[in-house]
Simulated scan of single mutants.
Amino acid sequence: MPAAPALAPAAPLFVVLNRGSGRGSADETRQAIEAACRAAGRPLTLRVVGQGRRVPDLAREAVESALAQGGIAVAAGGDGTINAVAHAALRAGCAFGVLPQGTFNYFSRVHGIPAPIEESLQSLLTGTPQPVQAGEVNDRAFLVNASLGLYARMLEEREDFKARFGRRRWVAFGAALATLLKGFRTWTLNVSAGGGTQVLRTPTLFVGNNALQFEQVGVEEGQAVEDGGALAAIALEPLGRLAMIGLVLRAALGRLGSASKVRSFTFREIEVQAATGASSGRRRVRVATDGEVQWMDMPLRFRVSPRPLWLVKRLDAKAERA
């Protein structure tokens, strides 16, 4: 494993702040960050998303500055913001920090980073870089999950619901049901690993890197993710709309893993290609990484990243299960 990034004394923070994330006031978040850094004597550079400034560009700038000055590139926002900064930090070997502002905050919770801004700031300002596992799909990092098919479409359409009704858990659940009622297609996929290939017919392939998310839906393979060195996948067998709605309800109750129409497995690296027939000819597909949907070329290569993500957190941090 490579050495941890060296932080300068009073390591400066380079924060990418997404004003559109979370339910609180962005101005209050900014003021809290500025006040905490002032009190700790830590230099701060804030890069605010908006007015034509895209998150990936700001993330790259934050990482470049952090590397040059022995500082920390920090994401203050939801999953999309965290993913963008983490992707840049992972590739560069830069120290990475999180001030979670999202709806579910799976990544920060599994690493014991509290949601209240004052508490997450204290964790960041008193923490040290520690290696944590990231996943990759076609070299794009993901911290929580990556998916194609129905789940990716659910995430894409969920953003419209959030814009109309707010960023709450019941809104996400209602958006999922609305997507299911529209209908969905079945994919035929060749999944290759270790010299062998299996054919999956499924409306969605979900690959996770977050033990807490698997635990909450009741899939045991999440334990392999928590132990480290593996990702876990879920594929649903072909189903009708009512049966699929039933599976969504089972997931909400934490009983998805016991359903007969659910296949799950763990791996370190797989390659996914559209099989001859129903899905053949599709060279580019929509893939969601930590909730952000983008086009990717087939085949899709999912793997545990060979590089650690150097997350700044306290040594005594405990995962939040609630």
Score class of each variant (00 low, 15 high):
residue 4 A to P: 06
residue 8 A to V: 07
residue 8 A to E: 08
residue 17 L to W: 05
residue 20 G to C: 00
residue 20 G to I: 00
residue 21 S to E: 01
residue 31 Q to I: 07
residue 33 I to R: 08
residue 33 I to D: 06
residue 46 L to M: 05
residue 47 R to Q: 12
residue 51 Q to C: 05
residue 51 Q to S: 10
residue 52 G to C: 08
residue 53 R to I: 00
residue 54 R to H: 13
residue 56 P to V: 02
residue 57 D to M: 12
residue 57 D to Y: 12
residue 63 V to Q: 06
residue 65 S to D: 15
residue 71 G to H: 09
residue 73 A to K: 07
residue 76 A to E: 11
residue 79 D to E: 04
residue 84 A to C: 11
residue 85 V to N: 01
residue 93 G to D: 04
residue 94 C to E: 02
residue 95 A to N: 10
residue 96 F to R: 09
residue 98 V to D: 10
residue 100 P to S: 14
residue 101 Q to H: 10
residue 105 N to I: 09
residue 106 Y to H: 15
residue 107 F to C: 13
residue 110 V to W: 04
residue 123 S to M: 11
residue 126 T to A: 14
residue 126 T to P: 09
residue 129 P to E: 05
residue 132 V to P: 13
residue 133 Q to L: 07
residue 135 G to F: 00
residue 136 E to L: 15
residue 145 N to F: 13
residue 145 N to C: 13
residue 150 L to S: 13
residue 151 Y to L: 02
residue 162 K to N: 09
residue 165 F to G: 01
residue 168 R to Y: 15
residue 170 W to T: 08
residue 171 V to R: 01
residue 178 A to T: 05
residue 179 T to S: 14
residue 181 L to Q: 15
residue 186 T to I: 09
residue 189 L to M: 04
residue 196 G to M: 11
residue 198 Q to I: 11
residue 198 Q to L: 12
residue 199 V to E: 10
residue 201 R to M: 06
residue 205 L to T: 13
residue 208 G to A: 08
residue 213 Q to A: 06
residue 215 E to Y: 13
residue 216 Q to M: 12
residue 219 V to G: 05
residue 232 A to F: 10
residue 234 I to E: 08
residue 237 E to T: 14
residue 239 L to F: 04
residue 240 G to P: 05
residue 240 G to L: 04
residue 242 L to F: 13
residue 247 L to Q: 02
residue 248 V to Q: 05
residue 249 L to P: 07
residue 259 A to N: 12
residue 260 S to D: 14
residue 264 S to G: 05
residue 265 F to A: 09
residue 266 T to Y: 01
residue 269 E to G: 08
residue 276 T to Y: 11
residue 286 R to N: 14
residue 288 A to T: 13
residue 289 T to C: 11
residue 290 D to M: 07
residue 296 M to Q: 15
residue 297 D to Q: 14
residue 298 M to T: 12
residue 301 R to M: 08
residue 302 F to R: 04
residue 304 V to A: 06
residue 307 R to S: 14
residue 312 V to W: 03
residue 314 R to Y: 00
residue 314 R to M: 03
residue 319 A to Q: 14
